[in-house]
Design a protein around this nucleic acid. Structure first.
Lengths: 230, 230
DNA sequence: CGACTTTATATCGTATACGATCCTCGGAGT
DNA sequence: ACTCCGAGGATCGTATACGATATAAAGTCG
């Protein structure tokens, strides 16, 4: 076979169905906070934007509905899911549990390459300017540490929870200056991993997530219309 | 307006879209183990069964895919998701964490009506004949205990995890006689709630879930083709 | 002049239709 | 006889089309 054919074959699509492509793009947009909570997602509009019909768009939205990022209103379409402060609090509480578990399992097993990678993410994190990049690096830092646990399902569950609250965390980070404390806690966590100390890694991780959760809930309670859920 | 109109209005549908109806029914069938892991779900067939077109069927399957109960194979359709023993082990480990947390929060707050309801479910559980009814009562028992925690998200996450492994648990219960030990553990858990003892409730719940998980993993490791993931 | 009904329009939810991809089975070649 | 290949059929993925429902605007009555 000629090299031309190979060339064509190599770039022959991301091997992604239209439905999956739309789902991934919208998911990212929601997580990044580009779409406001409660915003209506008009199917025809999205379909036109991606140059597909409504069918794959609806399939994508159904997927995101099950993931908890979108809510369907009967005969009124889909909106970006919004979380009450109580719900955010619950998610952060669960994250604290699972991430502490992952840290405990991973700390004794982590290797030097993973530590170096985490350290690199930490440095990049300190230099990152916008909240978008910050969110990405924050996840990279933590997931790098958790990977050594060899628990893909646990990691996936953590990521799923993280996705649901990430846009709120980012909004907070953009408005308040939480970076110094965050960086300090990250450094302490990394140090616990360097020492391969499971108890310290777990407890510091737990406290880190709960701190972020408390800070977030406080902020939202202040800035939302008194009883507000939105 | 006449009473006839009111009558019609009152029974005017389950207010459920075709897509949601199909999703719920298939989800139940998978959880109940009526559909074997790995089984192909043919869209035309399902559509004919429900007397709808493929569109709502595909939306339902996309929903279940995001929930982890179904897997799509590009241009080959959807199959019932199957779990390796390692994945089941992970899910049970996470369940143990979350259910222990729910038990700890709930135990000090639980009221007499909830305790009475849990006791009733426990009795029914002892008399239940088939695995299907057993699974339902088992969930009712545990969820009744957790409800007092006032943590709907936590409860929903637990239910989601439970759904993913329930068919495997049921298969085990049907084949082995695990009921006596299970009943004994349930009684001990209920007793801890009666005493409003958070530590005991949490630890007994944790052990209960981990026991079930270990038993399940052992069984599957014995009965699956040596390296088997299915 | 305001509240209720009615009509219009936009958007949703689903059925039908069709090209694309993959599996099956039979035939040619070694 | 076995392997490789291609035509046929089945199933998937998506575009188009249409009835159903909700929101908004206009009209009517008190």
């Amino acid at each position: 076979m000629s090299s031309v054919i190979e060339l064509v074959a190599s770039q022959k699509m991301p091997r992604l169905s239209a439905s999956d492509h739309v789902a991934q793009t919208i998911e990212q947009a929601i997580v990044d906070g580009l779409l406001a909570a409660g915003e209506l997602l008009r199917q025809d509009e999205i379909a036109a934007h991606f140059q597909v019909s409504k069918i794959p768009v609806r399939e994508a939205l159904k997927h995101l509905e099950a993931k908890g990022l979108v809510t369907f209103l009967r005969n009124r379409g889909a909106v970006v899911a919004s979380l009450s402060t109580a719900e955010i609090d619950e998610y952060m509480d669960i994250r604290a549990l699972l991430e502490a578990r992952a840290a405990r399992l991973s700390a004794p097993l982590i290797g030097e390459p993973a530590l170096a990678a985490a350290r690199a993410h930490l440095d990049d994190f300190g230099r990152a300017a916008n909240a978008g990049r910050w969110g990405e690096l924050n996840w990279l830092f933590h997931s790098t540490l958790y990977a050594a646990a060899g628990r893909p399902i646990l990691l996936a569950e953590i990521r799923s929870l993280y996705h649901k609250v990430e846009r709120y965390v980012r909004a907070l980070l953009s408005l308040r200056n939480e970076m110094p404390r965050t960086q300090h806690e990250h450094a302490a966590i990394l140090d616990a991993f360097v020492r391969r100390d499971p108890d310290a890694a777990a407890e510091l991780t737990r406290a880190h997530v709960l701190d972020a959760g408390a800070s977030l809930v406080n902020y939202l309670n202040d800035h939302r219309s008194k009883g507000g859920n939105t």
